[in-house]
Write a protein that binds this DNA or RNA. Structure first.
Length: 575
DNA sequence: GCCGTTTTCGGCCCGACTGTTTTCAGTCG
């Protein structure tokens, strides 16, 4: 079963080939919009089963049929008919920065260039010299683009992108005077991975700022440099776009460059209906010619007659309509969290000591945290029952020395039949239990569904850890009936974890959104294996916000007494 | 191709930068 991302990829391929083939802008753009929608939507498989596919914005009869074809056969008629006329390697040519559909179409029809190798050969042989609109600078840029394409890396993880953005901002702060500096784009929206880094800046000396940025020694190449913007490539191939405008339009600028593209299109379509034109330069009243400039983002949304939309929700789904109807939820914030349930120390596979993890958790201002090392089935690093009891004694010794309550816990394996890796009498010694799947990923969908439901029904299981098992950019997760398990979690009062490890980010936000609709609750955890990882809970909060989750949906936003009472209720079967 | 609080037809977000041009098409975000 292809994932949403794989289906979206194919829709984008169709879109690209349509443009190459001379289709009209609005026809191929429809595929682009549908692809973007899929990225943040529930799994297509579930949507089809529920008859909800055509409720997705931008998915009508034609694209809906193409999606169903891709799900059933792995491809679509439209795609195959294009591949009969264009080589699949033409996407390599289109991947070169500076070459778009018009140029790639011309290169193929006029020069027979349909692959990266053919493009290189054509440039080197001089075959392209003298072609209309192809000067020496363009060919030089293409050569550079080919090198970049070959060395290009996959999308960048959130923590890495954030670190690079902070580094760039620090460099800019040391340069010509600026007022505001903030990263925007997919990083600010907390997308799971980041394609490029966008930084917005306000300054009265924009030209000096962009020039300063172009001279950064980490810039391997300057892709574009003008009076208000500058784009560079790092050695890794990561692109950083900087935009500089006056302070009075900071709100407009930040809104524009936070995107997403689809969100901005929906926002601007709404504005056009009200006679307004929205851009990074302000909001133009088309009738009077007046321009409204906004010093903050809140004013932008207010000027358009809608509620403020937090960056994480700007996905181009239904958020603009909800903001007009004033039904944007108050999203959970990091400050709402009173504890972290999921962390490891050197009693299992963590790096730091128990004492160090307790102190570091206390330093983050939590009222409580759970020390949840692995259960015995994790082989060499899992805790035997004796070791678990030793840890429990150690926790008692530490006591409340650091001003934080350490809950006795474990991340207990959910075995292949849905039972747990410790017997009930051992589980009863713990304050809180996370049940996680760490084995037998290749069970059938029905087996895995039954396994997870049985775990939810276990009175000792309070949280299902990293519920899908997916790895960002890698393993897609074991297969199970999401809706059935979410319903079981809601019915039994078992929280679903949103794991903040950058490699996991699990539940994925589209699924978390679906789980919330089913009435489930959530645990936002770091899954830290070292002191420094405790801050990864930020990413769990980000994913939760992308799913529209509020503080009242979150187990570790409860005061300690309420939390313990709730755990006790589930154990007594009165949840 | 999609969509609807003027519409089932006729629209569809907005602007910066580049290279090659004598005014703009193509690319990008």
């Amino acid at each position: 079963m292809p994932s949403n991302a794989e289906i979206a990829r194919k829709l984008l391929d169709i879109r690209t080939l349509m443009e190459l083939d001379g289709e009209s802008f609005h026809r191929y753009s429809a595929f682009e919009r549908a692809a973007a929608t899929l990225e943040n939507a529930s799994p297509v498989e579930d949507l089809i089963a529920a008859g909800e596919l055509l409720t997705l914005p931008g998915v009508g009869k034609s694209i809906g049929a193409a999606i169903e074809q891709i799900v059933a056969t792995g491809t679509a008629d439209a795609l195959e008919s294009y591949f009969a006329r264009y080589p699949r390697t033409i996407f390599e040519v289109l991947g070169v920065s500076g070459i778009g559909a018009k140029t790639a179409g011309m290169l193929f029809s006029t020069y027979g260039v349909g692959s990266l190798a053919q493009l290189e050969a054509a440039i080197d042989s001089g075959a392209l010299e003298g072609a209309p609109r192809l000067g020496p600078k363009t060919l030089e840029n293409w050569k550079r683009g080919i090198l970049a394409y070959k060395g290009r890396q996959a999308r960048t993880s959130l923590p890495r992108a954030r670190a690079i953005a902070r580094e760039a901002i620090a460099y800019l702060q040391a340069g010509p005077p600026s007022h505001r500096l903030l990263y925007a784009g997919s990083l600010r929206r907390q997308e799971v991975t980041v394609g490029d880094v966008d930084i917005v800046c306000t300054s009265d000396e924009a030209l000096a700022v962009t020039a300063h940025f172009a001279k950064w020694d980490r810039a391997a190449a300057v892709v574009a440099e003008g009076p208000t913007k500058c784009s560079i490539w790092l050695e890794s191939g990561l692109q950083i776009d900087l935009r500089v405008l006056p302070d009075r339009v900071y709100g407009n600028l930040l809104q524009h460059f936070t995107g997403s593209r689809e969100h901005n299109i929906k926002l601007r379509e709404h504005a056009v209906r009200k006679g307004l034109r929205v851009s990074e330069n302000g909001i133009l009243n088309l009738e009077t010619g007046d321009v409204i400039t906004c010093v903050d983002e809140e004013s932008v949304y207010e000027a358009l007659g809608m509620q403020y939309i937090p960056p994480e929700l700007r996905q181009g789904l239904d958020e603009v309509d909800r903001a007009i109807g004033r039904s944007i939820p108050a999203l959970v914030e990091r400050g709402d969290l009173r504890g972290d349930f999921h962390m490891h120390c050197d009693f299992s596979d963590g790096i730091d000591t128990l004492d160090a993890m307790v102190a570091a958790s206390a330093a983050l201002g939590y009222a409580y945290h759970a020390m949840s090392d692995h259960s015995q089935g994790r082989g060499s690093y899992g805790m035997t029952i004796e070791r678990l009891r030793e840890q429990r004694a150690r926790i008692a010794l530490i006591g409340d020395r650091h001003g934080i309550r350490t809950l006795r816990a474990s991340e207990v394996d959910i075995l292949s039949d849905g039972s747990l890796d410790y017997p009930p009498e051992v589980l009863a010694e713990l304050d809180i239990v996370i049940g996680s799947v760490h084995s037998a990923y290749n069970q059938t969908r029905d087996q895995m569904t039954a396994r997870l439901i049985r775990a939810c029904e276990n009175p000792f299981v309070d949280v299902i850890g990293h519920p899908t098992g997916r790895y960002v950019g890698g393993f897609g997760g074991y297969e199970f009936d999401y809706d059935a398990v979410f319903a079981a979690a809601a019915r039994t009062g078992t929280a679903l974890e949103i794991d903040g490890q950058a490699a996991r980010l699990d539940l994925p936000s589209p699924l978390a959104r679906r789980a919330k609709a089913a009435g489930a609750t959530f645990a936002l955890d770091s899954d830290a294996h070292a002191i420094d990882d405790l801050e990864d809970v930020d990413f769990a909060v980000g994913q939760a916000r992308r799913a529209g989750i509020e503080a009242r949906d979150v187990l570790n936003a409860l005061p300690l007494d309420d939390l313990l009472a709730r755990i006790a209720r589930k154990r007594k079967g009165t949840a």
